[in-house]
Amino acid sequence: MTETKIRVLVAKPGLDGHDRGAKVIARALRDAGMEVIYTGLRQTPEMIAAAALQEDVDAVGVSILSGAHNTLCPRIVQLLRDQGMNDCLVLVGGIVPQEDIPKLKELGVAGIFLPGTSTEDIVTFLRANVKPRE
């Protein structure tokens, strides 16, 4: 029984400044006992991957409302894999059209959370899917 806290990087890529969702999620995850690092606005996929590595996180939660998810998410997943973070989950929250969901999942996005999702659902998802550390 290890009592290590789940570590999550909440990231806001792209040019969009709408960070209400990212900040609410960050606070909800913290309230649920997780370690949360928030990147701040306008992070490139490279900056996000570097922060994930440096902070040694279990999951990266990406908030995107601008429609740039198809460009940004696959790159974040790839960069994480390239640096050997194969178990690091990538979660996307925001406005993602239904037809884009299968493609993103196929590319390695673990969970996609649309508007109206309860923060509890995200907590539950992380607890169920983060791989326990050796």
Binding site: G14, L15, D16, R42, S66, G67, A68, N70, T71, L72
Partner: peptide, 22 residues
């Protein structure tokens, strides 16, 4: 769109994926 709001031209690398979107 977002690149315009941020003062970037459409050909800026930062504009990738965002031109004409919002």
């Amino acid at each position: 769109d977002l690149p315009t709001l941020m003062g970037y031209d459409a050909d800026s690398p930062l504009a990738e994926g965002e031109v004409g979107k919002c």
